[in-house]
């Protein structure tokens, strides 16, 4: 096995511009996944009539299918749907000029929202009922009780699993090359294809994902420490 170190280094430099794309995708997806996942969890924890069944259905659909299939589906269906809407409304838009990274963000956002909803759900349920009751008795309303008492405690419980879910999602964004997104994987594949030097390029992104994931883990650890400040024991 011959490793071309200088090629590996050159490609590494050329892959670097893909890092903001990878991180941007992950961040964009989180911006969808966190609020949506939280909403789904709230709906299910509070057993809101009918909607909770729909939420459960959505979660099992998304969780029960491979990301790759979700990518195929969204990437082929969404532009067509968008196109029909554009034609029907006479908008001055081209459905096929929408940057694919946006579709990727949607797929990973929806996908991660289901994992997060499960995480938030069990975290919310882990906060003892007495916390909410005490909040009510001191005069807080339901919204205030959630925001000030229940959610901070639930987040402290959820943080480690949120970290895992976020890291999984970051790694999954490597599938975005299937939608022609030029993230680090997309770049690596393109560069490697030129001289058939796959191994070097893949080693580059192997290390990059590793470093990115370690950074994410570290960030979550810092956040978790702050969330858990109240659990210090005497």
């Amino acid at each position: 096995m011959n490793l071309d170190i200088s090629f590996a280094f050159e490609t590494l430099i050329q892959i670097i511009p893909g890092i903001p794309v990878t991180l941007g995708m992950a961040l964009g997806a989180l911006l969808i996944a966190v609020p949506l996942g939280f909403l789904l969890a709230l709906i299910r924890v509070n057993k809101i009539f009918i909607i909770d069944k729909l939420a459960a259905l959505y979660v099992s659909f998304v969780r029960g299918t491979p990301v790759v299939v979700q990518i195929f589906l969204i990437y082929s269906a969404l532009p067509a749907i968008l196109n029909q809407m554009i034609e029907a409304n006479g908008w001055q838009l081209d459905a096929y000029s929408v940057p694919p990274v946006l579709y990727a963000i949607l797929v990973f956002g929806f996908n991660t929202s289901t994992h997060l909803s499960e995480i938030f759900r069990s975290a919310l349920l882990s906060v003892p009922k007495g916390q909410k009751e005490a909040a009510y008795t001191v005069g807080l309303n339901a919204f205030q009780a959630y925001r000030r008492i229940i959610i901070p405690q639930a987040l402290a419980v959820a943080a480690p699993s949120m970290c895992t879910a976020s890291m999984n999602m970051l790694k999954n964004t490597s599938l975005a090359y299937m939608m022609a997104v030029m993230d680090i994987t997309g770049r690596a594949k393109a560069l490697a294809g030129v001289g058939y030097q796959y191994l070097e390029a893949y080693l580059d992104i192997f290390v990059m994902y590793l470093i990115l994931c370690l950074c994410v883990e570290k960030l979550f650890q810092i956040w978790e420490k702050r969330l858990l400040h109240y659990k210090i024991t005497a």
Binding site: Q131, E133, A134, I149, P152, Q153, Y230, K231
Partner: peptide, 10 residues
Amino acid sequence: FQNYNLFQNK
């Protein structure tokens, strides 16, 4: 409350 129910995060 019997089991105090102090806000754990406060």
